[in-house]
Amino acid sequence: MPNLGWKCGKAAYVTVVALGFGFLILPLLVIIPLSFNVEPYFTFTEGMLRLDGDAYSLRWYRSILENPEWRAAIGNSFFIGFFAAALATVLGTLAAMGLSHPKFPFRELVSAFVISPMVTPVIIVAVGVFFFYSAIGLGQTRLGLILAHAMLGAPFVVITVSATLAGFDHTLLRAAASLGAGPLTAFRRIQLPIIAPGVFTGALFAFAASFDEVVIVLFLGGVDQRTIPRQMWSGIREEISPTILAIATLLIAFAIMVLLAVELLQKRGKKIHEGK
């Protein structure tokens, strides 16, 4: 029997949940229109609220394209992200395949070891990376950042690929071998199609981890290795301009694309698992 108190409780619960969702998403939604502000302000002008076309412009987007520092940062982010993700994906996929083997010795311990970079606070990883990489001449190089970012990204690949391999029937590989397939053929024709969605998901995670990383770039990178987040960092600290909002809007669009890609991959992964 729903009474008044119960109704009030339910209304309060719905309000709390709605506020929570608003808290999550509104801060991101608010900066999208602000990035089209014709004035160099970080708040809505009266013209914007009247939906006056003249109050909006693409000038901050143009200023990204016209600024060589931003262009270099975008190039660096994609370059470092791509190679870091590629390295993490190859190493992580191989390791996940090995770890999935039923007879793998000390599996728990080895898994924990290869995942440890993910569960260590980045500031501490960055301090260690700064000391060691500088000492061996990798300071202020793209290679140093690629290696460090690949190390941060590899655990994600291990986790996603391991998830697709859970429940993989290893007798299939033996069956393939008994039918005359070499280990490589068996891998390519049997195991790879099954783990492909996990590999791509892991690669996206690894790329995103590198794309978003800024502490290691701050400590280890030089002027020539500035990435997008690094450039945003100095933009915020030195002279904050609405260009930051334009780049932020582009990054939100990018995040949504990555999210959609991961969803699609997971759907495919499920289909393969169900044998469709």
Binding site: G98, F104, F113, V114, S116, P117, V125, G128, V129, V158
Partner: peptide, 22 residues
């Protein structure tokens, strides 16, 4: 299987464990 895991273990050792030890 051990051979498959070894490259990543070595990589994490050099890029993560040794830096923390440093």
């Amino acid at each position: 299987p051990v051979g498959l895991v070894l490259p990543l273990v070595a990589f994490i050792l050099v890029t993560f464990v040794i830096p923390l030890a440093t």
